[in-house]
Design a protein around this nucleic acid. Sequence first.
DNA 1: GTCTATAAACAGATAGAC
DNA 2: GTCTATCTGTTTATAGAC
Lengths: 208, 208
Amino acid sequence: MTRAQAKARTRALLLDAAARIFARKGFAGASVEEIAEAAGFSTGALYSNFDSKEALFLELLSHRASDRITAAAQTLDSPDASPGEALATLGRMLIDVADKDIDFAPLQAEFWLYAIRNPQVMDTMAATMNEPRQALERVISASLAQRGAPAEVSPDAVTTVVMALFQGLVRQRRVNPSSVSEDLFGQALMWLFTGILAGGAPAPASGD
Amino acid sequence: MTRAQAKARTRALLLDAAARIFARKGFAGASVEEIAEAAGFSTGALYSNFDSKEALFLELLSHRASDRITAAAQTLDSPDASPGEALATLGRMLIDVADKDIDFAPLQAEFWLYAIRNPQVMDTMAATMNEPRQALERVISASLAQRGAPAEVSPDAVTTVVMALFQGLVRQRRVNPSSVSEDLFGQALMWLFTGILAGGAPAPASGD
DNA sequence: GTCTATAAACAGATAGAC
DNA sequence: GTCTATCTGTTTATAGAC
């Protein structure tokens, strides 16, 4: 292993440890010593690889937002998968990601809090989210088109709704797992798309 | 003003300031001196009213989760309001609350992060959320019943979905307001309820 | 490139004056 | 009941050895 490779490895280990510790303690609550030790190094090594605690955090915010989510969405975003199947399984895949990666939701929450408190990084965060968002939007767009959704339904709006629903349910699942069954997200997506395809106008209340 | 009243006032001012500072800086990032000064007192006064920074935060987590949300839901939860109107306006009311109270969403995020990192307070947090949740569930339940939703549709599940959607959209609105228009939440609720009333089964893909 | 040791600043919490 | 002053531990970041 060359020196450059060794340094790159140290850097990667530090980033992994940082993601874990930041998720568990928060940005302000995590100490650099804690992160360095979790990675098996000293604070000196950490500062030789990153300018500051904040720079380390921003590196994560920029490049580690949601690789797994993107991968999940891209799996569905292939020519041979029918949009019908895609939507039916999307719910379970995302919930699965959220369950397996225990640090995912709190780290996203830390990123969001940091971004609204430091508006100058808002664009960076939005850019990081862009990739998984577009992957999801392609799946949704294809499904809407194939199922003959009304033209006035914006895939962009539907994507925003689906992502919001996902994030909200993942968080609630951490508070009370039994209140968010594995199928609930899929069920909600089914309701949502049924309603969209029905034209978006609900049946009038019986008393109207 | 009696001594007891004066102390109660100090306490209330400290709690208000704490909610603001915790929302803006986070639990770990906020200092007690900062909170005390924002309330117009010294750290000594703060410690004469609260045992610790953590006790102050827990007081907020227990008693200030969502008064405004509860109020909004209860406005709709009255005998003379038709469920049809209720659902139509619910979206805008909640978005309005979120827009007016700039500290609402980040404070909720801090509560959630604290709860998942300190499981012993999870029950406390769930209990605090119970009141607004039940108010919302009554509105939803009434609407489902009046519109003749299928019996197998659980108001509990629908309420969870609506709350998740609300929280997710409020957060996204802070990142990119133009991606979450004022009507989007109402639109999503309309899709959702249309789908539920249609029986929950989406039209099959045209290729099936 | 990483480690040990340490500097400098800051935070949570307390003690005693008023 | 609140304020001023301070104690104590911890934190970020750096300097110099290897």
